[in-house]
């Protein structure tokens, strides 16, 4: 009896895993077929950083740090907003009939995380290229950028789901998201202050705290999304 139950559970887990992977693959395919949105974001990153480059030359490290995280925030809103807004009503209904909402939201979170990680790395490269490079510990800063991009993408993916359900544009995402993201941005910019000199070391408890916050967001998203989804 136990064995049968275990097999069923394992089968279900495998099934939902394959569902998630299929959904991620579908998003990836869409991204490849409709390349205009991908290039749109690339252009957004390039243009934003270029505007900063033109309006200020070689900012000091504190300003550099602040600007970098604010730019990350705006890139994230633009990159993630479309994930739910692009889905038409008919398509949502179709997904509703074939997949579990939990798998659906996990797939979106996974895809947006990967997408945002890529965009973060790209914007870091452009930022150091145009705005000067004050970073002393490159490896640690890259790690922080990935961690920060991941956290931002998780929160804004869920808020994009809310905004899409409310049939609103990306502006309401910013209103809903800014107060929630403030502590995380503060933590990140505090942490990244330590990579500008060799004398200070990175605070590991803070890194773990951000990780814990991210896990909390995933947890909340999987619990709350099923309510959002049914009409």
């Amino acid at each position: 009896m136990n064995l049968v139950a275990e097999v069923v559970i394992r089968k279900n887990n495998l099934k939902s895993l394959s569902h998630i992977l299929t959904l991620v693959k579908k998003d990836l395919l869409l991204e490849i077929r409709q390349q205009y949105s991908f290039y749109g974001i690339l252009l957004y990153i390039g243009a934003t950083i270029f505007v900063l480059f033109v309006t200020m030359n070689e900012p000091e490290t504190k300003v550099w740090n602040g600007l970098f995280w604010v730019v990350q925030l705006f890139i994230c809103i633009n990159a993630v907003a479309k994930s739910f807004l692009q889905e038409s009503k008919g398509r949502i209904l179709y997904f509703y009939s074939i997949v579990n909402p939990r798998d659906f939201v996990l797939a979106k979170l996974l895809f947006n995380s990967l997408f945002m990680l890529l965009m973060s790395l790209l914007s870091l490269f452009l930022f150091t290229l145009f705005m000067g490079n004050p970073i002393q510990k490159a490896g640690q800063f890259i790690g922080l950028v990935l961690l920060g991009g991941w956290g931002l993408s998780l929160i804004f993916t869920f808020l994009a789901a809310i905004a899409a359900k409310a049939q609103q544009n990306a502006a309401i995402m910013a209103i809903l998201g800014f107060p929630i993201i403030i502590p995380q941005l503060l933590l990140l910019s505090k942490l990244s202050n330590s990579v500008f000199s060799f004398s200070t070391s990175i605070a590991l408890p803070t890194v773990l705290l951000i990780l814990a916050l991210n896990i909390l967001v995933i947890f909340l998203a999987t619990i709350l999304f099923p309510f959002l989804w049914k009409d």
Binding site: F158, K165, P179, I180, L213, L216, L220, F227, L228
Partner: peptide, 18 residues
């Protein structure tokens, strides 16, 4: 009611850690 309840719960749960 449903969407705002979802946001209320999400925001409250994120508010306390902050």
């Amino acid at each position: 009611a449903r969407i705002s309840a979802v946001y209320n719960i999400f925001a409250f749960a994120m508010l306390f850690p902050s």
